[in-house]
Design a protein around this nucleic acid. Sequence first.
DNA 1: ACTTGCTATGCAACTCGTTGCATAGCAAGC
DNA 2: GCTTGCTATGCAACGAGTTGCATAGCAAGT
Lengths: 180, 180
Amino acid sequence: MALEYAILVSLLEQPGSGYELARRFDRSIGRFWTATHQQIYRVLGRMEADGWLAVELTAQSARPDKKIYSAAEPGRAALAAWLREPVQPESVRHEMAVRIRAAAFDDPAALIPEVERHRTAHAELLDRYLAGEQRDFPDLESLDVQQQLQHVVLRGGIEYERMTLAWLDDVLVTLHRLSH
Amino acid sequence: MALEYAILVSLLEQPGSGYELARRFDRSIGRFWTATHQQIYRVLGRMEADGWLAVELTAQSARPDKKIYSAAEPGRAALAAWLREPVQPESVRHEMAVRIRAAAFDDPAALIPEVERHRTAHAELLDRYLAGEQRDFPDLESLDVQQQLQHVVLRGGIEYERMTLAWLDDVLVTLHRLSH
DNA sequence: ACTTGCTATGCAACTCGTTGCATAGCAAGC
DNA sequence: GCTTGCTATGCAACGAGTTGCATAGCAAGT
């Protein structure tokens, strides 16, 4: 399971509460790892019990206490050990690919609106990546180690979106051709 | 859940037993949807109970009976209905991206062997895709609807692997630079 | 002779992940 | 005044997916 490690990375980059982590997983981290707030709270509890995290309670007027988590030494050690483990092959789940093959047994044209909506979503994501790159990495000559690694991951996201957009155009051409 | 629909597509393309389906999910279908034989048997049982599948029992000497499944009309109708549902945003899990950002808090050079192994695996997958394309689609001018849709999905897989290889090269250059 | 591997299905136990709901006050818009 | 939305955490129930094991004979390699 890699959610623990995704959380550790996020807390090493910047300590925060469960709620803040959940928002990060909806934004930057969510680009390569998604999780609901439920899962995050549960895993945070387990990691705290295992001594991977340090917690600082912040009392707030008229609100539940805010628990600010940060990575403790055993957590950092666990992360270093994980980095040396072999990467297991990703388990692929490409719903759009299943739908395209499914279209052969229905009307291929019926799929076009969904593919177009999908394309729009990916185009918007690419725009957000490019805007984020401008904002977070304005001067590529003066990046520290952490930023350089963040940037190479972001470049991967950008190339993935470009590739996906080109493929979805290919899919749309194919579907239109089949609808004569 | 899309495993039902991935199974339906596979059975519409070619009826088969649970065991055969499991092997297909390790090969061609596995390129965009993975599942263990356990999950396949369980979901097949549910689909059969729901009347989505037709079953033909084949007695075999000295082996358990082979159950040959094929898609029944209610299954086909369910697939058509699913095709018209909105695609929900994919839940992304890119372990390598988490590892790369994690490397900032450890030794970036320690990650290089794993990235190289990962790169080799993707290069082999690309080779298999290209060989499969030659084998299954030798004459691109004479493909029926089903083959054209299978081919556009395969083209997506090929482009994904090419993009991934280029990105992993970028990652390796970055990691080597950080290890001076 | 012995092990390994393939065909073929399935149970049991577990972990991972999602969905629905609950609390609770504050701020902003209508 | 009323709804909507945000901050902040969490329980309970469910569904998805994995891991380990079991059966059982046949074929092929060592």
